[in-house]
Design a protein around this nucleic acid. Sequence first.
DNA 1: GTTAGCACTCGGTAAAATCGAGTGCTAACA
DNA 2: TGTTAGCACTCGATTTTACCGAGTGCTAAC
Lengths: 349, 349
Amino acid sequence: MARRVKTPPQPKSDLDARKATILEAVVVEHIDTAQPVGSSSVAQNADLVVSPATVRTEMVALEREGYLAQPHTSAGRVPTDKGYRYFVDHLEAGVLGPAQQRQIKEFFAHVRGEVEDVLEQTSILLSHLTSYTSVVVGSGHSHATVLSVQLVNLDARHHLLVTVFSDGTVTKHSVLASFEANHVDVTEASRQLNALLIGTTLEAKVQVPSRGDTIAKLVREAVSVLHAEMPTMEGEQVYIGGSSKVADVFEGVETVRKVLGILEQELLVVSLVEDILDKGVTVAIGSEHGFEPLSSCAVIVAPVSLDGETIGAVGLLGPTRMKYQEVMAAAEAVSRHLTTHFGGENERG
Amino acid sequence: MARRVKTPPQPKSDLDARKATILEAVVVEHIDTAQPVGSSSVAQNADLVVSPATVRTEMVALEREGYLAQPHTSAGRVPTDKGYRYFVDHLEAGVLGPAQQRQIKEFFAHVRGEVEDVLEQTSILLSHLTSYTSVVVGSGHSHATVLSVQLVNLDARHHLLVTVFSDGTVTKHSVLASFEANHVDVTEASRQLNALLIGTTLEAKVQVPSRGDTIAKLVREAVSVLHAEMPTMEGEQVYIGGSSKVADVFEGVETVRKVLGILEQELLVVSLVEDILDKGVTVAIGSEHGFEPLSSCAVIVAPVSLDGETIGAVGLLGPTRMKYQEVMAAAEAVSRHLTTHFGGENERG
DNA sequence: GTTAGCACTCGGTAAAATCGAGTGCTAACA
DNA sequence: TGTTAGCACTCGATTTTACCGAGTGCTAAC
C-alpha cells in the first residue's frame, strides 16, 4: 500500500520501490512474451529477493490499484494501460543499438531529394528501425508566404496556377475560365498575380482588381481558386511506413482490419498525432488519446521542429505492449536528425 | 454457352457444354462460400439435370484436365487457376448494380480537383465499390513537353526549379548552387531556361550556354538537375485504395502480411499492373502474372486512355476466388468514366 | 512482514470419439 | 454407352473427455 501523504498533486501514482520493481518486471516480461506473467517468474528477477508468495501479495495490491489485471483466475497478471503508463513515466531514456544508430546516420547522410521525398523515406526508415508502423506528418504551410505565383495556360480556357511558398512547397491549381484568354493575357495576369501575392500568406486578404477586362478576370479567378482551396490546402502531408507491420504486430484479424482501416483515413491519423503532440506528450497508451478504435494501441510521437517551431512529427503505432524504450529512442533520434537535416539545409552550401 | 468454332488458336481449353456448366457451378459456389464444392450441390444446379454421380464422373475428368483440384480425398472440388481462367474467359460481361452505377455517376459528377486528387479519390471509390483493394496508376509524362520552367530563389544558394508540363503535371527540384546568386540573376536564368526548354521533352538534349557567368552556371545547374532526375521522375503515380480490405478478403495472417508488404512497394505494384496491361489482358489469375508472392491473388486491370493513348490504369487485387463479374464491370465502368472525365476536360469549359 | 505449504481453479492441449459430407466403385438400367 | 442408385469407405472437422500444470489465494508458521 503506497503512502502518499506528502504528494497531493500526484493522485496516487506512487509505488514503493518493491511494487515498482514488480510492476516493471511484469511489464517487461509481458512485452517480451505477450503472455500473462506469473509471480514466480517475477520473483526470479535479480533485483528482487522475495518469494513468489510475497510477489503475489504485492500483485494483488497492484491489481487493486489498477496497474495490473488478471485475464482470469489462476492466470498470471497483465499490465493495464495505467500500468504501462507508470512504466513509461519511470523509464530512463533508452539508447539505440549501434546497428540502428548506423542505419540512421547512413540514411541521413545519403538521403536526398525534396522534403516530401525525405519525409516519405523517413517513414520507411522508421518502420524498418522499429518493426512498427510509422507515421510521419509534415505540417501545413499556413504561415508560409508566397514566393512566386505563375499562371500557365494549357489552352484557351484552361490554366494552371502554380504557387511557390517560402517553405519550399509548391502547389498547383487548375483554373478553368469561362472566357478565352491568350498567352499574352495569361502572362500579364501572371505578372499581376505576382505583384499582388508575393510576400503574403494565404490567410491575407488581397485587393483584387475590379476591372472587367480579361486580365483582371483571370487574376480574380486565380486568387479565388487559391483562397477557395486554402482550407483543404493546409497541406498536411502524411506518410505511413510499414503498414504491413500491422499484421505482424497485432493479433487477431479483426484488430488488424480495424487499425488498417484507420491508417487509411489519413486525416484521422494526422489529427491523432497532433492531438497527442498538443498535449505535450510523447506516448499515448491505450485509451489515453481518447480515440476508441485505437484503444488497443500505443502511439509514440516526437516533434520535428525548425527555428523553434514545430513543423511536423514522427510517430509510431503499435500494440500497448510495444517496446517503448527502443521505439522512443528511435523516434527521438530520427526526429532529432530530421530537425537538424532541415535546419542545416538553410546554412549549408 | 459460347460457341467458338472459328478460334483454332486455343490449344484445348474446350469443354463440352456439361463440363462447362459443372465447372462454372463449382467456381460460382466456391467464390461464394470459400468451401470445396461437392457433387450434390452442383447437381442441384438448375441448368443441370443429372445426378450427383454423373457430376462426380465429370468432375474426375475436369480434375484430370486440370480445371479442378481436390484439397484431400473425400472433400469437394476447388477450382484451379486454370479453372478460374476458363470461367473468366467464358464470362459474359456483367452489369453493374443500380446502386453502384449511381455511386459512380455521383462520384464523377462531383469530383473536382487536380488529376492527382481525382485519381486518389478514384482508388477509394473503387475499393468501396468492390470491397477489394484497388490500385490506380497514372502513367509518367515522358512524352509531355515543357510548358514553363521557373527558377525561384529561396536564398542566395538555394533555388527551386518548378517545371510545368503539357500534361498538367508540375515538378519541383531543389537546385543547390555552389555560388551565390541574386534575385536578378535568378530571374534572368529563369527566362533563359524557359527559352531553352519550352516545347522540349525531357528526353531531348538541349544546348546549354557554356559561358562562365553566374546566370549561365545557374542555367546549366538547373538543366542538369532536371535531367538527372529524369529517370526517377517518370512520375508514375500510384494510389492504393482500401488496403484494409486485404485483411477482410484474404485468409491467414501470413497472406495478409505478404500482400500488404507488396502493396507497400509501389514500384512493384506499378510494374505488375503495367505488365498485365502490356499483355493486353484484363485479368491475371494466380501465377499468370508470374509474380510468385502474389500467386494466391487475382488482379483485374482496365486501362485509362486519352486520345487513344494509355495514360493510366485502374486495378483491383483480390484472392483468386474474387467476384470477377462484378469487379470487372466496376473496373470497366470506372476506367471508362475516368477516360471521359479526363478526355472531356479539354473540350468542356 | 515474509514465506512455505497446500488446496483449488481453470485455460490449454492432447487423445478419443463421433459425425457427416463427399468420394469412388459397382452393378443395374434405359 | 451413358446414366444412376446404392453402398462402403475416407478423412477432415467438431465435439467430448481427460488431464496437466501454471498460477492463484489462503493459512499457519517463522
